[in-house]
Amino acid sequence: MARVFVVDDEPDMVDLLATILKSDGLEVDTDTDGRSALARLLADPPDLVLLDLMMPDLDGMELLKLLRLDAKGANVPVLVVSARSGHQDQLGTLQLGANAYICKPFSPRELVRQVRQLLETSEVETNA
């Protein structure tokens, strides 16, 4: 079963994301703190990371940079889930190495579609 790691400082948002992903049959890990999330992500890389941008202390952009710096995190697919909807933000995260971007508020169906697509792509890549 594919394992998805959700990082968001809003506990309610974490619950919502986890509920939707689990209802689609995925295994879910969560963290509401950027620093501890990064440590856990590098210790045991999941199949996909859902990442919030605006978080206290270590924000999503920084976390993404740090994740990509490390060989273990360099290839983990990252889906950014953010309430920032500007093109610049989207482009910025993609340039930092995020694989896709979804805006809050999002629809559960769209979220699942994007997650499935990213998981499939990375599967193809690993098997190639």
């Binding site: 689990k22 209802s23 049959g25 890990d29």
Partner: peptide, 18 residues
């Protein structure tokens, strides 16, 4: 909250959860 395993649930189940 670590490593919770989810199994597929029906749509109405998801609705209840939400």
């Amino acid at each position: 909250m670590e490593g919770e395993r989810g199994s597929p649930v029906a749509a109405d189940q998801l609705e209840k959860e939400l």
